[in-house]
Amino acid sequence: MQNMNLYSRGDKFFVKINMVLVALFTISTLYPFIYIAAMSFSSGFAATSGKVVLTPIQSTLAAYNVVLAEPEFWRSYLNTFIYTIGGTIMSLLIVIPGAYALSRPQLLGRRFWNLLVAFTMWFNAGMIPFWLNMRDLGLLDSYFGIIIAFAVNAFNIILLRNFFESIPSSFEEAARMDGANEFQILWKVYMPLSKAAIATITLFCVVARWNGFFWAMILLSDESKIPLQVYLRHTIQRLSDDEEFTTTLITAPYSVETVTAAIIICSIIPVLLFYPFIQKYFNKGILLGGVKE
């Protein structure tokens, strides 16, 4: 089937047109990143006067110098790492044992517990009660609040539970007869057997944490605790309002656009570095969770 020589002339034409279209879509996906990168290395004047299209104009590191000189930038970068690593570990600590327990046939009230988890995918109290609850729990403006409050989601638990359920029970029974207790069965048998699924939810967690913005913006008012995404948002807002930035000087080494672009590039880099790992697993992961028979 993959042999081009077997294709008719019409088919060859069809395949070529298709290839061009896919290439166009791919380029248009990639282009904004190239554009932003070019912008971040351009001079403020070139950016403001709309000269940047594909490559940096009047190359300069001025925007980066502005961004990297801000201690708040570094602070927020560090915070993002704290939230990402702490949050992911917290997620795994709750989700893995929970999913395992929910997959055990001997668990009393198994249907009830599963429903309790699944129901939250269908019905959510919404933004305001959640926020009030966070306030009542004293978790506003707290690192721990951000780390714990978003540690679990029903989808990840169910995804992993389904995976655990698909492991033949004889593995568990063999381990049980060998004298393993539940913790040992989970740690020494189920977790090694579920590497792909666990990697998948880990990646989901990491990406969600790294990108988490809305709740961090709402729950954190202390500037020293905000993550990168919120810092980025604040900076864009601040620069747009700033007198100095809105006047267009021909000599301006940087502008709102170049500084914004520089922060964007800085916060994308870790995602790009992490991306190859993500790629390896998300194909499997999305299918694992997608549709349960």
Binding site: L93, I94, P97, A101, T120, G126
Partner: peptide
């Protein structure tokens, strides 16, 4: 089987505290 209940507890407590308590609210 107490161990599986110990494993389940954190998840259930989390759901009650962060998703069901707001429903009361």
């Amino acid at each position: 089987e107490w161990q599986i209940y110990v494993m389940l507890a954190p998840a259930i407590i989390w759901f009650l505290l962060f998703l069901y308590k707001p429903m009361y609210g």
